[in-house]
Write a protein that binds this DNA or RNA. Structure first.
Lengths: 122, 122
DNA sequence: CCAAAAAGTCTACAGCTGTAAACCATTGTG
DNA sequence: CACAATGGTTTACAGCTGTAGACTTTTTGG
């Protein structure tokens, strides 16, 4: 169930704010300045593809994400790792480390993450 | 200087094997089973876009990557991080950690990376 | 209940991408 | 040198994506 970059903006709105009406979605992606028609098209394509669902209750239609954010993030990330880093996370981190583009705060955060992984070694 | 997924297969061949003739490129991406014509088209588009360059010496034309792999990897990775993880590496690692999809070897590797970063704290 | 507004569906269209055939140029070989 | 093979260029075309207008249906305020 693929989602294009433009469509993912719609998904993002639904993931963050929960089910929304069309006009709420339009408002939510206002920063993209797309015409309303454009947003309607994107919603429609997502519906057809099954990434979202529409629910009708007393005159209002709300759109709800079917595809979950975690699944989407996972698919996108794994695809990048596969294409560029042999499918693993460590080489990506290594790349950023070499670039020296890891801020100290990030390094700290990473270390904390690893420590936690050791802790709950279930 | 954008490179599409299909085109990136050509780049990959040039990055790994260095400058190649057209027929060597065709051989290098044989696993994709594309017709020769397809490979030629991809080479051409890369040329036009400036991602590769052709050099002619005594009757042979070789193609050489102009765009560097590290730059490409960086751009692609950063774009993913920006789209999905607030531009930072740590949240991506966190995501995989939550998924429990980090193999012990990877965790070890990550830890080693972080240690090195501390060491040469230049 | 009717008309205006809002919401939803259908159609359009240009540019990008994957895929490749056809055509033109070069080069090496008998 | 002529021709076959190889290499390079141009053209093609369908599907996807971004972008949006036009048309239809539903809702709602007077």
């Amino acid at each position: 169930m693929s989602v294009t970059p433009a469509e993912s903006q719609i998904m993002e709105a639904l993931w963050i704010q929960g089910p929304l009406t069309a006009s709420e979605v339009i408002a939510a992606v206002k920063d993209q300045d797309w015409g309303e028609a454009t947003v309607k098209t994107l919603i429609h394509r997502l519906l057809k593809r099954g990434a979202i669902r529409s629910e009708r209750a007393d005159g209002r239609t709300v759109y709800r994400a079917v595809l979950e954010r975690a699944a989407y993030v996972q698919a996108e990330s794994q695809s990048l790792l596969d294409r560029l880093f042999g499918g693993e996370v460590a080489p990506l981190v290594a790349h950023f480390a070499e670039r020296r583009s890891l801020k100290p705060a990030e390094i700290k955060r990473l270390r904390a993450l690893l420590d936690e992984l050791d802790d709950d070694a279930d």
